[in-house]
Amino acid sequence: MENLVLLSIGDQGWGDELLAGLMITLMLALLALPVGLFIGTSVAALSISSSRIGRLFALFYTTLIRGLPELLTLFIIYHGVGLLLNQVVKWFSPNVKYVEFSPFLAGVIALGLVFSSYAAEVIRGAWQAMDKGQKEAGIALAMNRWLIFWFVERPQIIRLALPGLGNLWINLLKDTALVSVIALDDLMRAANIAVGATKKPFFFYLSVCLLYWLICVLCERVLFKMETRLNRGIHTGR
């Protein structure tokens, strides 16, 4: 019973603090997603382009970021861009003492980069799995490159890449917990603060775990529904 009070909303409970943290977590994931998808699609386009340098760059990019721990990527962005920002500011106006680089922005960029490197591989696979005749039909209709991409290729890439991207989305949600290390008040850090005040670590960390679990299971359900919907016009030949 007293544990329920601890999770209640208001002065006595930590429910509202945890919910505020959850909002930050979800915002972070929802903002990192379009960043990651955009970069991921661009890198995928490079990796199947005819330009040798483009392909090499795509290979370098995906190998590099997928080979680094997510935590390290986060620190490199947070501290690295922070230092760079200060150098630039100092260059322009030497009077400014120190500019704080927003941990939220660092989180969005780092998580977006991590997502993009994995997404690039998934999207490339989907792009290559698509029937060549689709593109040729577009060319035969005198569509230009962008029209073909947007109206012919993109809808089918989404269908083929969705299972892979869905997994990545769930990984992204879980990776958001890492930003608590750079002092961003997400769900994980809200739990840390609650633990510091109440000395009930097991209770709060378990609650947070269950909350993450619930969200992930919900997302899996939704993704499954989306996949069935996207495949509704496809006959599997049985």
């Binding site: 879980k174 917990a177 890492l178 840390n192 633990v195 009930k200 097991f202 960390y205 378990l206 993450y212």
Partner: peptide
């Protein structure tokens, strides 16, 4: 598979302190 590794780690390291 549905919870962050860092949350599992905190649960086992700090949580057992309770």
């Amino acid at each position: 598979r549905g919870t962050p590794l860092i949350a599992q780690l905190f649960l086992l390291y700090y949580g057992t302190g309770q």
